[in-house]
Design a protein around this nucleic acid. Structure first.
Lengths: 195, 195
DNA sequence: TGACTTGTGTACCGGAGAGTACAATAGGTT
DNA sequence: AACCTATTGTACTCTCCGGTACACAAGTCA
């Protein structure tokens, strides 16, 4: 037990609440009072536990990657390139249309276009999205070596295509498209899969 | 010539500047001082000419639809469904990657996720995006009657698929993807086109 | 029992946000 | 000329933002 007065709230649970708010309202759209209300704590507790707003957002982002967006890592473990893509699409759709979840993806709508104050957050999200494309490309290159992806496929393009569809689905979800609608779009997208 | 002191600036040019700022920074990320600076006018002139921030945004949105996003209407006039889709993708890519233009699409990144104050703007963008999907669906249904689209195609799904790809391209563009990269993604997306 | 350390709650700070009052100005109208 | 009307620039309002000072509470350690 550490010294001093014990914290009166569960720090991970509070972080989950903060993540949910950022996810729903975006970085700029989220105010500190909105966060403290959702987290059930007071302002100074927030700052003591998580630093400032930007630092809290980054922590929420890590938690998002490890939790709700964990399907990405899982999908990469699928045996074939095609299964990876299918699982990625299915996971994204499930995440974005699960009742109670904000509609869309934190990494996309957290800060797509924003003012100067939030620009470093925007850049962070840009590079996180790029990292996913990179991982996907690597996975597809492995698939090529494994022989389950044709040798004349451009893995970078294919990775970017899959990412593009997922990001597009995010926008559709933000407009309240149903799970079934999104799944049909994903099925159609897979028809472009290289022979 | 109307009565009173004449306006010292061109109202359409000022609106163009405002549109560009909203396009680059999003609705929430744009402040009035940022707008007045770009428009070259003072605060009260802005309010006198355009109402409040929300009203200015809506006017900028209309101007966007008539100007930079005019390629949508043009694309719908193409002779075949496939040509419509191809033109739509090409137009979007050109718009989003033209040097000097903000990277992305105002209708997507203007307010994807936001606080309560901007929610009516978010809804406006949602319904504008939905309207485009509707138009596209209608166009595809006409194509079916024209015989250039197979009878067993679901036009609603196809329209949503094309919109999804475009919105995904928007996110890619916001991450500084090049025109060539986006075009290759678009080409790949068209491989899903129904036979 | 103290001293010590850390979290909590209230109340505050400086600054920036959107929106406006008002006097001065620049034109047309009579 | 005098008058009327609409725009302009300065300076202001009020509210909310992110962030913090400070006194107090709740624990551990000697």
């Amino acid at each position: 037990m550490p010294l001093g007065r014990p914290r009166s709230f569960d720090i991970d649970e509070a972080l989950d609440r903060a993540m949910e708010v950022f996810w729903r309202l975006g970085y700029e759209g989220t105010s500190i009072p909105e966060l403290t209300k959702a987290m059930g704590i007071n302002r100074p507790s927030l700052y003591a536990a998580f630093g400032n707003k930007e630092s809290l957002f980054r922590k929420a982002l890590d938690r998002y990657a490890a939790g709700p967006a964990g399907y990405v890592r899982e999908a990469l473990d699928r045996p074939t390139a095609r299964a990876v893509a299918e699982q990625l699409l299915a996971g994204a759709i499930e995440l974005m249309t699960t009742p109670g979840n904000p509609k869309g993806c934190l990494v996309v709508q957290g800060a797509l276009a924003c003012g100067e104050a939030a620009d470093s957050i925007r850049q962070e999200l840009v590079s996180r999205r790029a990292a996913i494309v990179d991982n996907l490309q690597s996975r597809f290159e492995r698939a090529k070596r494994d022989g389950d992806l044709s040798a004349d496929v451009d893995c970078a393009d294919l990775a970017r295509y899959v990412a593009t569809v997922i990001h597009g689905l995010t926008v559709q979800a933000a407009g309240s498209a149903s799970r079934e609608q999104l799944q049909r779009v994903a099925d159609m997208a897979m028809r472009a899969w290289p022979a």
